[in-house]
Design a protein around this nucleic acid. Structure first.
Length: 211
DNA sequence: CCGGTGATGGACT
DNA sequence: GTCCATCACCGGA
């Protein structure tokens, strides 16, 4: 009864076009301990080397290399000294863009997800936030650059229900400049009425500007 | 519910 | 040395 996967052409578009279509779709990782699947309720687009919030803004490096590769692959990165976050690479090969998986609802493997995230008190908190989502799915360094269109352990499936009419947009979360030029375009997409959507917080400067 | 803050390590200037 | 596409936990309302 395996549902058809999203094909590479789906991802070979601008991240701003892919992002809203990804809402309601399901990311599934069939790992060594069993499967966990998450229905996406919140994503963010990172588009091109000119995007000041993107890891690709300084050009290709060892870390962001998957972003410059073919679409339909994962870009998994490590941040804040302890968290992994997962993106889906978009755009044609050579053009750096990606969609960050920010939040979702665990629709399969709830027990395993709780085992991976003991701090989550409710199932709602299992994948509420990008690092939580990656952790619940069991995604880490070993999945960086994995192909999600090849029937491997990580796949993306069409959503069970249409999300038309429920897509909302807003500024990105935790990105410096999101309220300025980078916030001119709505790059954060979420499904209205979903309790798993993460709370919006503007990026907080670490060092105060001189008084 | 909310806001404030420490933890912690790799990438990059 | 500085900057993080963050989270968990704490205290207050």
């Amino acid at each position: 009864m395996s549902r058809r996967l999203l094909e590479r052409g789906f991802f070979a578009r601008h991240a701003l076009d892919v992002a809203p279509d990804l809402l309601g779709c399901v990311v599934r990782h069939d790992g060594p301990d069993g499967p966990v699947a998450v229905r996406l309720t919140e994503v963010e687009a990172y588009a091109g080397t000119a995007d000041p919030g993107s890891h690709a803004r300084m050009g290709p490096t060892a870390r962001n290399a998957p972003m410059f590769g073919p679409p339909g692959h994962l870009y998994v990165y490590f941040t804040y000294g302890m968290h992994w976050c997962a993106n889906l690479v978009c755009s044609p090969d050579g053009e750096a863009s990606a969609v960050l998986l920010r939040a979702g609802e665990v629709v399969e493997g709830v027990e395993l997800a709780h085992h991976r995230r003991p701090a989550a008190r409710t199932s709602r908190d299992l994948a509420r936030g990008p690092a939580r989502l990656a952790s619940a799915l069991g995604l880490g360094r070993e999945h960086d650059a994995d192909d999600v269109c090849a029937g491997g352990p990580v796949v993306v499936l069409p959503g069970p229900e249409g999300s038309a009419g429920r897509v909302r947009t807003g500024p990105r979360v935790g990105v410096a400049g999101a309220g300025g030029d980078a916030g001119a375009f709505p790059w954060r997409y979420r499904l209205d009425g979903e309790s798993t959507v993460s709370a919006y917080r503007p990026a907080k400067p670490r060092r105060r500007p001189s008084a």
